[in-house]
Write a protein that binds this DNA or RNA. Sequence first.
DNA 1: CATATCATGTAAGTGGTTACATGATTGT
DNA 2: ACAATCATGTAACCACTTACATGATATG
Lengths: 186, 186
Amino acid sequence: MDVKTLCLAVLSHGPASGYEIKKALEEGPYAYFYRASFGAIYPSLAQLHRSGFVAAESRSQVGRPDKRVYSLTPDGHRELVRALHGEPAPDYLRSDFILMMFHADLLSSAHRRAVIDARVRWLREQLACLDEARAKDPAARRYHGAGPAFACGLGRTIYAAELAYLESSRAQLEDAPEPPLKGAAE
Amino acid sequence: MDVKTLCLAVLSHGPASGYEIKKALEEGPYAYFYRASFGAIYPSLAQLHRSGFVAAESRSQVGRPDKRVYSLTPDGHRELVRALHGEPAPDYLRSDFILMMFHADLLSSAHRRAVIDARVRWLREQLACLDEARAKDPAARRYHGAGPAFACGLGRTIYAAELAYLESSRAQLEDAPEPPLKGAAE
DNA sequence: CATATCATGTAAGTGGTTACATGATTGT
DNA sequence: ACAATCATGTAACCACTTACATGATATG
């Protein structure tokens, strides 16, 4: 699943410009499981347009570049459905946080505490954000139905589980004695 | 955190060849939060060697290329500690599975069920693997101490939470009626 | 008066992956 | 016989990120 497919996915909720797609990707629920920059989005949209998967409408604006609003064509919709019916690639997670925790014994206790604190704050923020969105945020209206609810619930579950684990287990990590002599392993 | 740092991290548990690092990365607990291919590992090791962060010892073998066993130098250890004390980059997750679930309404019920079944099987496998390793697997002896236990426990917690969520919520997703008319959103 | 938001696009660089080249040994 | 495991390395390729170019309008 490349950025092109991701653009089709976002556009399936309604027409949008490249700029709006970027915003949807970093503010909406997509942010949880995907990411893309302008340098990836704009060329992708241009290529999707050449392939006939999206239609473009230029809305001229004063003072800024014309806003190009893209919308899914029937072909684009079929292409999205086709891509969604392939084998899902295995999840790819890259986490500096877990790497640091794995090597907690090499960390100064100050840094260890700071990193965990930041993580806890971030998790609480994400949870608050998800709950708030579910309640009344107008931006969330875009995403309704069983699928988005399921995916957001999954995100919520995982964040909550990690937060609970961190809060209950961080003491063990922080109280652990430093190894008596480095290089004495095994 | 690039592949170079990752190599240093693996080598901090003891000397290893490029091949063994790859195995540690895809079989050990690192697999949960990082990944790397030979094409990334071998050049990284060569560069680490040039930088003086690892020492190399060639063990000649009959019939195969000499096995080059690398080990962390004091400089390499310091470099690892230094890297571990930086700001952790935000987690990067890329999940085709969640993207598919987000667009569950575009999926055939057969594919939707197949994908969820495969995910459930995979999660159960991961959990079994983590529990087995904790019990008696000799390969896990490499990783001991509070850090690895914490990181593995975190992985276990998250997998278990996702599995429970999937099993309790999949019915809602699968029973959801198809939208009456496509394109009638809003 | 500086910073953020809106808005599109390109070019250079990067951090990898995939495929290739090579080949003995062991297990099925 | 065939596949898997052990073992290292290179080269071509790729998808993406970062930085640049441009600039009006609104907000604090």
